[in-house]
Design a protein around this nucleic acid. Structure first.
Length: 684
RNA sequence: GGGGGUGUAGCUCAGUCGGUUAGAGCAGGGGACUCAUAAUCCCUUUGUCGCGGGUUCGAGUCCUGCCACCCCUACCA
């Protein structure tokens, strides 16, 4: 039976470009959608840019253009990036659309009608210069607990949490002005009135992974649900609330409604009715989101839908975050790679496949290791799958496929049978399992060619029939793989279709071999990953991040954010003047940490082995044990005093010093060197 | 502090309802081949299934205590 399925990914915020972390979700969703379409289900995939909120307003001001101009440019850039990764939406809208405004108003009216809206005053910090209320993250000041300066509005690095009004000497990061307290009316959704409904939905709907249901039950539903502050006083880039002039819907109110608005647009241009998708029990709705926005999609959103008479999601499919080499992505290490940068140096199919091998139905983070990435793509995709076509492609172009499918020892039949299991894995979002099963099939197919020895047949005029049979088997096995992996690698599916003159359009094509047809001239399908390209990609990401940071620093509006304390200079005044000759006596060198280990008898020391390039090694003891984990130091470039007289210590000889700043203890910060420097180079 | 999860080969991971000798891919070692992108094929080494108890004829699997790591959340469960 054909299912009707509406699928969404979370709406990307129009405040920045798409990066490889975002892509986990869009690739995951796109794979699932393509799978459903391949299975013959009626499936549409809608998304939109999330365009409202203070951050957009501020950014537009800073860039001296209208919000509309900013979000238009962002939308274009997002869509270009998605397109580059083969992510195919049926409709891509914007929360700043007429459709969205209309549906927001409708849902709002329903909430009013159900008496779920309350009004009360809220005191909030206000920036009198920028003339706007300030969210926590736009206020910085001195921590009331420990006295550290320049801390964010909600918590300090010392671990203390507070409200921005508790900060000593608070400053707006927008203008540098001192914020004042100002009262305004806010509107709230009284979510507690929906407590029973939500508890029931979470318990019985089967829409959530069990860990998510547990989390909600334990964390929220065990208590009274707090009112949800749904309005923001102007100026605010968003929709003004029709029955509350001067107040705007908070961005998180209209963002999910964007799912419906985007569907509306699709309906309008395809002659469909919105009710058939959002008010129908015969349609499924699947939301794909990241774990950070669980709360909005599993409490507020179902509450809003229920109140307004829309159907509830069939599934909210929540995924974890991307880490790179086991660490959070970061600009400074170049692991926060933008979609655009990735596409410059690498092939989107690689990333689609790699993510597919990592994705499971569970809410867990997934790690991208450069070596693992290279290995998986090269061994699995190029070595196994593509190679199968590549190794018989040239023969097949001259022979074509046999009239009848030859005996292959049951390979084709076995792979056809495996289709059900692979489909079940896709359906359950267990792409990792699906990829594993597909690779097992590829592993079985290659030995067939090997044992048949088509290259020998080619030389013998009398064995051309046999050669044709081998090609027929190999290419049909390849085609099965291409069909099964088509949701992940649409490009490969296309290439397979071109080669055999028969486009891949349906999962069931895997059940019947192609026979008696010509084969096109073989075209190379996929290149191997080159590690040097990935390295370039990381390097460029680092450079871009550095350029961004430099630009931010140069911007005058940001000076206020850098009200650094004068304490360090007071603690340690600048030393007596020296001549350049005296300075030159200190030979500072770039060195690479090649090993780092704890010294069991020492309280503060780590034993480092530093490389100055070639075979030059220095053993150095550094008092940084409390601040650095030895494993994380290995491989890093540091700056060392290289001509320091070696000093005998209880634990061994120390042949230099590693440079670092900070008062000591946990607050020690090793001097780093920008990428490109070579161990052994002198610091001038 | 609380909640959730993970721990199996050097690496990434399978392992069904408790059932024979714990598996795959990659990496490593040896050989073969030359159709194929230094691709492929054959053979092959490696295990305290985190640790300790318990239940059982039988435990990687179930129970329990501990350890390590990860995620979430924190004077709200």
């Amino acid at each position: 039976m054909t299912r009707r399925i509406l699928v969404t990914s979370a709406l990307p915020y129009a405040n920045g470009p798409i990066h490889i972390g975002h892509l986990v979700e869009y690739i995951q969703t796109d794979i699932w959608v393509r799978f459903q379409k391949l299975r013959g289900n009626r499936c549409i995939y809608v998304c939109a840019d999330d365009t409202h909120g203070t951050a957009i307003m501020i950014r537009a001001r800073k860039e001296g253009r209208s919000e509309e101009a900013l979000i238009a440019a962002m939308s274009e850039s997002h869509q270009r990036d998605f397109d580059g990764f083969g992510i195919q939406f049926d409709n891509y809208g914007s929360t700043h659309s007429d459709e969205n405004r209309t549906i927001c108003a409708k849902i709002w009216q329903s909430l009013r009608d159900k008496d779920l809206i309350a009004e009360r005053p809220v005191e909030q910090l206000y920036d009198p210069e920028a003339e706007t209320f300030l969210a926590d993250r736009f206020v910085r000041g001195t921590c009331p607990k420990c006295g550290r300066t320049d801390q964010p509005g909600d918590n300090c690095v010392c671990g203390h949490t507070y409200s921005p009004t508790d900060l000593i000497d608070p400053k707006s990061t927008l203008s540098g002005a001192t914020p004042i307290l100002r009262e305004s009316t806010h509107l709230f959704v009284e979510l507690e009135k929906l407590h029973g409904f939500l508890a029931d939905w979470i318990d019985t709907s089967d829409a959530l992974q069990s860990e998510t249901a547990n989390y909600l039950k334990g964390h929220f539903l065990a208590n009274e649900l707090r009112d949800w502050d749904i309005s923001r006083p102007g100026p605010y880039f968003g929709f003004e609330i029709p029955d509350s002039p001067g107040n705007f819907w908070y961005v998180w109110f209209d963002a999910p409604i964007g799912y419906i608005a985007s569907t509306q647009q699709w309906c309008d241009s395809n002659g469909e009715k919105l009710e058939d998708w959002w008010n129908s029990d015969s349609c499924e709705i699947h939301h794909f989101i990241g774990k950070d926005i669980t709360y909005f999609h599993t409490l507020f959103w179902p509450g809003m839908l229920e109140s307004a008479g829309f159907r509830l999601p069939t599934k909210v499919r929540i995924h974890g975050f991307l880490t790179v080499a086991g660490e959070k992505m970061s600009k400074s290490t170049g692991t926060l790679v933008s979609a655009e940068t990735y596409l410059k140096y690498s092939n989107p199919s690689y990333l689609r496949y790699f993510y597919a091998t990592k994705l499971t139905p569970r809410v867990e983070d997934l790690d991208l290791g450069i070596d693992e990435f290279t290995e998986k793509v090269n061994s699995d995709l190029v070595g196994k799958v593509v190679n199968l076509a590549s190794r018989v492609g040239k023969f097949a172009s001259t022979t074509g496929l046999s009239k009848q499918y030859p005996d292959d020892g049951g390979l084709f039949a076995a792979a056809a049978k495996a289709g059900d299991e692979i489909a079940a894995a896709y359906e359950a979002c267990d792409f990792s399992r699906a990829m594993r099963r597909i690779m097992e099939l590829a592993d079985a197919a290659n030995p067939f060619v090997e044992h048949a020895k088509p290259w020998e047949m080619k030389k013998d005029a009398e064995r051309q029939g046999e050669l044709q049979d081998v090609c027929t088997v190999a290419l049909n096995l390849f085609r099965q793989l291409a069909i099964y992996i088509a949701p992940v690698l649409p490009d490969l599916a296309k290439q397979c279709g071109d080669l055999l003159g028969s486009p891949i359009t349906s999962w069931d094509q895997s059940k019947t071999p192609l026979v008696g047809i010509p084969v096109a001239k073989f075209q190379r399908m996929m290149d191997r990953v080159q590690s040097k390209d990935l390295k370039k990609m990381i390097d460029e990401s680092k450079e871009l991040a550095a350029a961004d940071a430099a630009q931010d620093n140069a911007s005058p509006t940001n000076d206020a954010a850098f009200n650094d304390s004068d304490q360090p200079l007071k603690d340690e005044p600048i030393a007596d003047e020296i001549s350049i000759d005296e300075f030159a006596k200190v030979d500072l060198r770039v060195a690479r940490v090649v090993s780092a280990e704890h010294v069991p008898e020492a309280n503060k020391l780590l034993k480092l082995t530093l490389s100055l390039g070639g075979d030059e090694r220095r053993q150095v003891f550094a008092g940084i044990k409390a601040a650095y984990d030895p494993e994380k130091l290995v491989g890093r470039l540091v700056v060392m005093a290289a001509n320091l007289k070696p000093r005998k210590m209880r634990f061994g000889l120390s042949e230099g010093m590693v440079t670092a700043a900070g008062p000591g203890g946990e607050e020690v910060f090793i001097l780093g060197v920008d990428e490109g420097a070579q161990p052994g180079q002198r610091v001038h």
